[in-house]
């Protein structure tokens, strides 16, 4: 079966720094894949290449068997690759409703001209659904940037849900969250993997070990190891590079 996502010989150079170096990265459908590694290992850069925020210096990216290397970020998002930022990036100043509506209406109408004909009722039904799923139904009309940080992250999750992605990239989703909020987030991630493939960058090892079906370890722009959680946790090379024991 073709993997949802596959990169071949992917590289990104920033001046003299090789941030991502000849990476072959494949994720089968429905998997939760964790990417771990020390700071500066190239995890976020790799995700930037996959989501189209950055253009690769070399290599290829294919999504559902199609080469998307030359597609721009918005085209990839439209075909189902959704990236959530490491630092929360909601639309400040707009209400929670408006934030999720932007995701919902994009899912309901692909082209600009289809947007013109869109019925607000269909959008609002979808928004209500997504906000209810993450437990934010009570703050619909509040300004998004007035929410506490944990809720802002949940709002991002609601936006991702409303987009119905095929591949969801979560960049350090638990950063800055309280333990109870982390549990909620993990539940949401697990709940959506029936239909969605998830790639998660995470430093919080208990979360990684609990969620991931498979772990990729990166160091200095390259893939150091890849395998099931138990196997990775026992790998001495990985422990030296990352776990620090």
């Amino acid at each position: 079966m073709t993997p949802v996502l596959a990169t071949a010989g992917l590289a990104k150079r920033f001046g003299g720094l090789l941030a991502v170096d000849n990476v072959y990265f494949e994720v089968p459908k429905g998997q939760i894949r964790a990417v771990i590694g020390p700071n500066g290992a190239g995890k976020t850069t790799l995700m930037g290449l996959i989501s189209g925020r950055l253009t690769p210096s070399a290599g290829k990216i294919s999504f559902n068997g199609r080469d998307v290397t030359r597609q721009r970020a918005w085209e990839r998002a439209r075909s189902g690759i959704v990236y959530t930022f490491q630092v929360t990036s909601i639309f400040a100043g707009l209400s929670c409703y408006e934030n999720v509506a932007l995701a919902a209406q994009r899912h309901l109408a692909r082209s600009m001209f289809a947007q013109v004909l869109l019925d607000e009722k269909r959008i609002s039904d979808r928004v209500d659904d997504a906000l209810r799923q993450v437990g934010l139904a009570h703050v619909t009309s509040q300004r998004a940037d007035s929410l506490p940080y944990g809720h802002q992250r949940l709002l991002e999750v609601a936006m991702s849900l409303a987009l119905e992605p095929q591949l969801l990239i979560l960049d350090e989703p638990t950063q800055g969250l309280a333990n109870a909020e982390i549990d909620t987030l993990c539940q949401h991630v697990r709940a959506i993997t029936d239909s969605v493939t998830v790639v998660i960058i995470e430093h919080n090892m208990p979360v990684v070990l609990e969620l991931a079906d498979c772990i990729t370890v990166m160091e200095r722009g390259a893939v150091l190891a890849e395998g099931e959680p138990a196997q990775i946790a026992g790998d001495t090379q990985v422990q030296r590079a990352y776990l620090g024991t």
Partner: peptide, 23 residues
């Protein structure tokens, strides 16, 4: 309208709008 919402989104945060899949 929904179009107006996208225009405002472009003003507030263009990169985020692009990553939602808007040209």
């Amino acid at each position: 309208s929904p179009i107006g919402r996208v225009l405002i989104a472009v003003r507030v945060n263009e990169e985020r709008t692009r990553l939602l899949g808007y040209n």
